[in-house]
Amino acid sequence: MTVHARGYRPLKDRRRSKGLRFVPIFREARRDAMRGVLLLVFRLLCVLLPLILIGFFLYFQSGPLSAILRQTTGGMQLDELTTARETLSIALLMFHDWTALWIVLLSLFVGAGVIADDLRTRALPLYLVRPITPIDYFLGKWLVPVSALVVYVLCPGLLLVLLAASMRPSGETWAFLVDRRDVILALLHHFAVLAVGYASLVVLVSTVARRRLSAIVLGALVFLGGSLIAGSAMGVKGPLGDAARATSLYANAQRVLQDGLGSSLPYAQRAELPSTTAAYVVTGALFVACAVAVLRRARTSEVVS
């Protein structure tokens, strides 16, 4: 019997009309973004090496960690628990400082192609004629760099916390974790600001550039430009200086991390950072700009006209 003869047939197969429709988009985009041996090596090296090195310093209470701690305390003898707490804070700040450039590059390599590849291969019509919403498309793509940052920013930080806790005498591990829950919260907070900022920026440039390589170059220029503006605004007082300093996404994330860890550490005071409010406003604005750009793109096929 033909469709013509039976009229409009009702849908009775196993198709789901609701649910997390962005998940397949995310999985496919992530698989595509993470493809390549070179990228795998880069991903491992840029995070694994600093993590191992800082983990070594933390475990043996040696190297630059102990030097900074001595500088912090002015040579004053601290009790063992305070030493462990302060060393962990320094280790976390040091890790994020050492990996800052690599994380920017990693975000660009992973996220630059998520929308640009669809535009280049003209695959957008394949999404537009399927029963997904532009929000599904946006979430599926935006979460790709976020998921990479979970692995390469959040997880190493949590591993350092676990390492510090595991070094406590038997029976004190859990108590240390409970005592330093502020560190875990600070790491989550730092990750949220960094991931939202970085992911929004790379997805935004991916949408604008339409080519993976162009998106990487444009993204790198924006990151660099933000850092230069922030650097030139050192010492500038008032909201203008604050806003200028907040153009550095790294500085925004550092501000949040330092707020969480306590800002009395000299290691963390090398640079003037934006206010917490400015960090939030810039991160939020970037997310909104990214969402608007992707949703607009996902609603039109004129790019393939």
Partner: peptide, 12 residues
């Protein structure tokens, strides 16, 4: 819809 353009993922 079968689009006119070469709209497939070459890597997969």
């Amino acid at each position: 819809l079968c689009p006119e353009q070469d709209a497939v993922y070459a890597g997969a």
